[in-house]
């Protein structure tokens, strides 16, 4: 059994009065890629934001690398956050800085490296996501896919032991997205990084996922290995995998009708 890097216990999250996550408990293990799945609006991004302390849970705890995540400006939380790379769903590059400045920002904040070294690191990272040409461009001048790749480069610039990716391949072409999968697997295998990926791309899930967390309406429906998940034959999870393999696969789940049918023709 490998060691837990992130432990979430009984996490309940609310926006105002509306409970979005109900009593979530799960673990993320070292050097493992865990894919968070679920229909749109089920609370995946919300789970991510609570895990990294951007939002405070209504109840429950999050523990990352042995530190309990609390207020963002507490020193322990800050120190832990430095070791996490986050790629946001829409990139979240800072519009007032160039791509290179965006990627250099964490380095300038948290290290004392010289500008020459920083520039070299930035160029290396840009190259690893095939964005060499974007060095001096502003985020507004990039396409959606390029912005995502730049965001990944920024998330990786401090070589974090934990990486969160919110829909990394949505909107990317198949070639780039396969390249991204390779990059993630490489990081897991060679650097032992723990990676949490939110994605809907079935092909990519089958390639990269070690384990799967399936959320529905803010509750955990399945939490376990990919192999086991693929064996499930009924319910939403099976539906999810079947559906996309084969569009005529399982029909939508029917609700129990209260209509009293006396006779049919």
């Amino acid at each position: 059994m490998s060691e837990n890097v992130i432990e979430i216990r009984n996490l309940t999250a609310k926006y105002g009065d509306r409970t979005v996550l109900h009593d979530i408990s799960t673990d993320f293990k070292r050097a493992e890629i865990k894919v968070v799945l679920g229909t749109s609006g089920c609370g995946k991004t919300t789970l991510l934001k609570h895990t990294i302390g951007l939002l405070a849970p209504a109840s429950g705890t999050v523990n990352i690398l042995g530190t309990q995540i609390g207020e963002l400006d507490s020193p322990e939380t800050m120190a832990t956050l430095k070791r996490i790379g986050v790629m946001y769903q829409y990139g979240a590059l800072l519009g007032s800085l160039t791509v290179a400045q965006n990627i250099a920002l964490p380095l300038k904040m948290h290290t004392k490296l010289s500008n020459q070294l920083i520039e070299e690191i930035v160029r290396d990272k840009l190259h690893s996501v095939k964005l060499d040409i974007a060095y001096d461009l502003f985020p507004g001048e990039l396409s959606g896919g390029m912005r995502k790749r730049a965001a990944i480069a920024r998330a990786l610039v401090l070589d974090p032991p934990i990486l969160f990716c919110d829909e990394p391949s949505a909107g990317l072409d198949p070639v780039t997205s396969a390249g991204l999968d390779d990059l993630l697997k490489e990081m897991r295998d060679h650097l032992g990084i723990t990676i949490v990926v939110i994605t809907h791309e079935i092909e990519s899930i089958k390639v990269i996922a070690d384990s799967i967390l399936y959320l529905e309406k803010g509750k955990v429906l399945y939490d376990g290995s990919l192999a086991e998940a693929l064996k499930v034959t009924a319910g939403p999870l099976a539906n999810f995998f079947n559906r996309v393999d084969n569009f005529n696969g399982a029909p939508a789940v029917k609700m129990q009708s209260k209509l009293i049918v006396r006779s049919t023709q």
């Binding site: 029917k254 609700m255 009708s257 209260k258 209509l259 049918v261 006396r262 006779s263 023709q265």
Partner: peptide, 28 residues
Amino acid sequence: VHILERTRSTEVESIRRPILDQIESTQQ
């Protein structure tokens, strides 16, 4: 039909299969 189902006790008679399916498949 959906509203009736919720607000009144509703029975249907001599309904064709496809139409029943149509009604039930959009059941919220």
